[in-house]
Design a protein around this nucleic acid. Sequence first.
DNA 1: TTAAGTTCTTATCCTACATCAAGAGTTACG
DNA 2: CGTAACTCTTGATGTAGGATAAGAACTTAA
Lengths: 193, 193
Amino acid sequence: MFEELDNHITRCAPMSSSELGVFHSRLKSKILKKKTLLLQQGEICKFEAYIVKGCVKKYYIDPDGEEVILQFAVEDWWISDIGSFSEQKPSNLFIETLEDTEVLMIDFESKQRLFAEIPKLERVFRIMMQRAYSVLEGRFYATVAHSAEALYLEFLEKYPTIPQRVPQQQIASYLGITPESLSRIKSKLLKKD
Amino acid sequence: MFEELDNHITRCAPMSSSELGVFHSRLKSKILKKKTLLLQQGEICKFEAYIVKGCVKKYYIDPDGEEVILQFAVEDWWISDIGSFSEQKPSNLFIETLEDTEVLMIDFESKQRLFAEIPKLERVFRIMMQRAYSVLEGRFYATVAHSAEALYLEFLEKYPTIPQRVPQQQIASYLGITPESLSRIKSKLLKKD
DNA sequence: TTAAGTTCTTATCCTACATCAAGAGTTACG
DNA sequence: CGTAACTCTTGATGTAGGATAAGAACTTAA
């Protein structure tokens, strides 16, 4: 349950097994049913969640009532509204499970306490944030520079497991296009081969 | 020169003036002429730079040879290619001054040493990263969800000083539209009022 | 197993923005 | 100065993807 997580952590900063033990003890394991809402617009995000097993989406509802998916998270990813969590201010976003999902969650106070107890973790989370930032930056550049078709192909490469796990309309939403357009792109790609 | 910077830092973590002194001593002040390239595609980004005075752009060159501006940075901002800097790997980006600019720069080794000397700074930079992340996230959401006109109006609100400082074609590039489209948007907005 | 959701596809028409082109101001400098 | 080199505007035309609609295929559950 903790192996992958510990690998990531010790790659950022060496950590004794007792320190890892303290870290583990602050994480709460939860099993969540499909379609569970972890965060709703207007709420303060109370967690950072590491996904042990399952699949989660983060989205907001635009003024027309349309769901716009900003992120999928699967095994071995973290999910949270970082702005809302770290500033403890209301979120604009929703976070919801797409499958039955097992997560390890940490709340704001536990994280603060943890940093006081194991300052090295401050480094671990700084490095994780840097990586998350540059991943988001890369995605942003791709979105402005590439066509819908190119974005879809990149998505398939990067997240090969997701198309089998979530409906295509949600992938379309993530790509910033309509389900109809994605359908057209797919049939066009099929003809090409 | 350091006041604004120190304000930001002490708001993240209390810091004695001797600690701040150590931090300052690791920063190199530089005065850069307009159009100075700080980073080029293929290079490893060797700095994080805090802008004391001036204006800088970060961009990449797309396959058609077009400059795509990803970020403007003005007084009191940091600029770097975080991915390239923190992983010490080649960058895809360019960073270039748009005006004569004064910066405070820190290099990779100095930053590492600084964290060893003043572990509290680890927290400061973690918090800065979190903020940067949620700002980028917000911009990303806006880009996928809003029209070019809305993006331009948001840009004017958020960065009121930039339009007077940089050519409109560069703002268009930042917004992800052509200069012609921006020109049309502007004339349409003028007629409205 | 049938009916009621969902989800995906296909077709037609539409719109925001791109592309191409030409002209009008501005700024830089030989 | 005057001419080159940008920069901005405006117009004509093109296109990727949106909106709408309707039906097909697949799911779910009574």
